[in-house]
């Protein structure tokens, strides 16, 4: 079953456009949504939460159309924005008291246990929480109202390595039973190497690739060669950087011709992001 299915989203702004964004997330998995700043991650996430109006396209969550079943689906979605905080002067206690009556499946016991697990003190104000704690609080809320799909916008940005690692462990624990699915956007690619099952890469409003993580990386090769070899293969490279020995570039695995005799290796997610954005800027 698909937890999330996005088909042909289009949204035009004055200086930016989402173009035919489509991808899907299988239930019980973690999808990392990567892209440079301004690539369209937050816009896509906002459309999944129905915060913006689409020009065209369709979003289905748990098989149901988002627009037709918005209220019902919002009962099952948990969300966190890494960089936006709400009612920061209020205590956790106060905020929870206001939020919980909105959810028909609120589980007070689960909430208590998550507070304990995440070390959240109910009497603290939101402004007193660290960035990681804020995300944990949002998670505690989402999980206590039985959210099946977590939509997290840059939950790990601004966290120290320890807090990030902890949060990623929590994500993995959550999806273990196969009930909860997570879509989280990030530009910290090492997070995804640790915990994502699927990767969706967006660049300049367009989905470049959305696939299972290993397959995603396997689609590309990082190649090293000398200047002569560069002449042979320049047209096939996604992008490349020249250096004193020759060049390093990214190429689609299917375009790699063994007769070129260049050194090739699997790229990291970061390599993929960097070379794709280089390609983009070459056209500008």
């Amino acid at each position: 079953m698909l937890a999330l299915e996005i088909k042909n989203l289009n949204k035009k702004y004055e200086h930016f456009q989402l173009k035919d964004v489509s991808f899907q997330l299988e239930k019980g998995y973690i999808m990392g949504f990567i892209g440079a700043n301004g690539a369209g991650k937050t816009t896509t996430i906002k459309s999944i939460l129905n915060l913006i109006r689409l020009d065209s396209g369709e979003i289905r969550i748990m098989g149901k159309d988002l627009i037709d079943h918005e209220l019902e689906l919002k009962q099952e979605i948990g969300s966190a924005f890494g960089d936006i905080a709400f009612y920061t002067r209020s205590k956790i206690k106060t905020l929870t008291k206001v939020i919980k009556p909105f959810y028909r499946n609120w589980d007070e016991e689960a909430y208590r246990s998550y507070l304990k697990k995440f070390n959240l003190n109910e009497n603290k104000r939101i402004s007193e929480l660290s960035t990681g704690m804020k995300v944990k609080y949002r998670l505690a809320l989402a999980l206590s109202h039985g959210a099946k799909l977590l939509i997290l916008d840059e939950p790990t940005s601004g966290l120290d390595p320890v807090a990030r690692d902890q949060l990623l462990d929590i994500f993995q624990e959550l999806v273990q039973d196969g009930e909860i699915s997570i879509l989280f956007s990030t530009h910290i690619t090492s997070d995804l190497e640790k915990c994502a099952d699927y990767i969706t890469y967006i660049d300049n409003g367009r989905i470049i690739n959305s696939a299972e993580k290993e397959a995603f990386i396997d689609t590309y090769r990082l190649v090293n060669g000398n200047a002569d070899q560069l002449n042979d293969m320049e047209g096939k490279l996604i992008a490349y950087k020249k250096n004193s020995f020759g060049f390093t570039g990214l190429i689609h695995a299917r375009d790699l011709d063994p007769s070129w005799d260049v050194r090739s290796a699997l790229p990291s997610l970061e390599d993929i992001m960097i070379y794709f954005s280089k390609k983009e800027s070459a056209y500008v």
Binding site: L51, E70, L71, Q75, F81, A85, F86, I99, F102, Y103
Partner: peptide
């Protein structure tokens, strides 16, 4: 300042 617009929009309400 408290981002009420997004806060409220994320709740299951019309």
């Amino acid at each position: 300042t408290q981002n009420d617009l997004i806060f409220t929009s994320m709740l299951p309400v019309t």
